[in-house]
Design a protein around this nucleic acid. Structure first.
Lengths: 223, 223, 223, 223
DNA sequence: GATGAATGAGGATTCATTCAT
DNA sequence: CATGAATGAATCCTCATTCAT
């Protein structure tokens, strides 16, 4: 569940081939990646056969190998395509205000929105991370980047005397970042519902998550 | 990661066969379950072949089918064996005091201790939940039970005017319970370390987690 | 072609599995080896599909893998079975007389007889040696053993003043041993015929080969 | 192995296409043949992919088929190119003297020199002959031509009362010609070494081979 | 002529499951 | 009950060859 994170360089050790030189090649490769995403999201990583992907992409089995060496490699390509969108949420980036609470809320909203938009892929990512060590590392690195960034934010607020100085920033960040990504997974991937059996509302999620996070660090009351 | 929970009845749809009648049968079955746990924890669920299990149990391939129908079923048996230990942590059970903070801390300590003790199995559980829908359901149910219980506790504290009345108890419980299980997974299964590269200390974890949880709900300052 | 040699330990690096414990297993394995020999000799090494072998052995594809890891391994098993017969010819072993010429002739006769008896297999061996380095090494080692042995024989005769002291024993042995194996290959495998289009007669071959060899080393005239 | 021979007309059944009309075509074809030789000699016939050849020739896969129908055909082209050099050694051509021993020695020297010069290709030829019947025939024909020529030489010497009249000229030629080609293969392709672990010296080889051959036929002592 | 993407038949291999002994 | 050999469906992957551009 949840990746806790952002940051983004290349995909997992995929040799990252050059794009095919001809327009036809570009088209075919794109068709394969798109098809793979459809099939992966529909059948899950394990139950996806390469033949299903080429079938969905309307091309021959062999064509797959013109562009990818195996299942992992297409998956990495999908991740690569989605990276821009998935990594978008940056703490405070979107906030208009300088108020720490507003910054936090904006950050959480951005994160949850992006998560919801890519929910199927995030679920897939989670699944794959539990299957392929390559992607586990990939996921962990991204999560750690995010955690570290939030830890720096917390330490900064501590230094400024704004929040609880008694918690270890790194541990707190790990716990709270995890809380958010975990919740996102539960709500958007597992489809868990609230106490009354209703689907979660995004605003509600953002509010609760931000409130808990702020409380946990003892943000001062506003106003 | 993390299961968010406790509770525990039977295993996933395993037909829950009667124990074998003869003592030899009992022995063989036990050997298979023990062997399966060893192999699963060593090789992971997917990479485990039934032949590896029978090999480790020093019995013939065919013997496996005398006791189990397939891999899922042995895995369910393992879970069944471990249930007692894994589900042990009950909120407040260990607490001597009635102070909500003490109860919370005792509960968290119990949970984290049990998690650490069964770390490999919890990691396995997590992996399997991402592979087999049967176990996903199993895990979800247990987590939801725990979340619901904690939600009731939160609602109760709200009613008594002790904690923040503004958060939805169910959402808060989901978030905070998830925070703890998530952290447990990161630390005990993934082996993540703190900001200084040191392994996490159990007391430190209990302290931080409890403090964040209490803060999040705005537990009153003590004495 | 020809292998120039004898000597014999295990087969090429084949892990040399234990024989299957049950009689049924023994039977099946033997059937596979026999089938493999038939198919290899009929279709050649490269054109043999594992399915052809299991087909000929009347068993399922999977059964093959109970006993062998791949084509090389069955081939090694075939070689192993034939080794006793193929390595039989030992210099002087069969000779009644101590006369060097008689010893030489007996040795050549033994070699050529064994070669003819296993002609198809020798052809196969030759083919495989040109394809698989593993078997190339195997063949080379056997040949070198034979060459070295003959070189010692030549050196001995030189010391005793019986044969031409001017040739290097090792080089001469390599040349003459090769001459015999090469001829055996041409006649028994390639099916080359004599000047009048007639198949070679064994006695004729033995005579010529022995005579050339003896002359080449300047064996003394008899009587 | 060795080919026992010389002689040389066309290549194996290659339809022997006309040379390409345009200069660009000539260049491309030549590049392909050169590339093929490099790759074949490096990777062996079987492990060479047509893509490797076109890659080495810096041209597209499809281009290959403008000039050749398949792997065999390029290989035939390579052979064709090398023929001049490989078939060069003619009995007595280089000899100044009319003495049979000198003629023989000159012939052997020429043969071994040419063999050494084309060692890699000869090894390749040997390999291919064991794989493709087409080339097996090609090789055999060349060898037989050489053997027949030498047989005529032997018969002539017999008629002139110079050498042993008791051996069949054809069989003796087959044996002795094979001896030389076999030795050439062992030394120049397999890289076998002499008794002291030293590489063979060409003069030494020529001397031994000639001496054995002469002795085998009972050439008269000189002087 | 050259290009290189697309094709798809073909073969090796795995492993859960069965069943005769 | 235990045994372990036999089964064969299911997939992955290779690469010679074609052909539209």
């Amino acid at each position: 569940m949840g990746d806790d994170g952002s940051a983004g360089h290349a995909g997992p050790s995929a040799p990252q081939r050059d794009l095919p030189p001809t327009p036809r090649g570009v088209r075919t490769r794109a068709a394969l990646v798109a098809a793979a995403r459809v099939v992966f999201e529909r059948d899950g990583y394990l139950d996806t056969r390469l033949a299903d992907i080429t079938g969905q992409a309307h091309c021959a089995t062999g064509t797959f190998y013109t562009y990818f060496a195996n299942k992992e490699e297409v998956f990495a390509a999908i991740l690569d395509e989605a990276k821009q969108d998935m990594l978008h949420p940056g703490v405070g980036r979107v906030a208009d205000s300088d108020d720490p609470y507003d910054v936090l809320e904006a950050s959480n909203r951005a994160y949850l929105t992006a998560y919801r938009r890519n929910a199927k892929l995030m679920g897939l990512m989670e699944q794959v991370a539990h299957i392929d060590p390559e992607f586990r590392r990939f996921r962990t690195e991204r999560a750690e980047t995010f955690i570290a960034r939030n830890a720096r934010g917390i330490a900064d607020l501590q230094k400024r005397g704004i929040v609880d100085p008694d918690v270890d920033p790194m541990t707190a960040s790990r716990a709270l970042s995890g809380m958010v990504s975990r919740l996102a997974y539960a709500v958007f991937v597992s489809g868990e519902v609230d106490g009354d059996g209703r689907e979660y509302d995004l605003d509600e999620l953002v509010f609760t998550v931000t409130r808990l996070w702020a409380n946990a660090l003892r943000f001062p009351d506003r106003g």
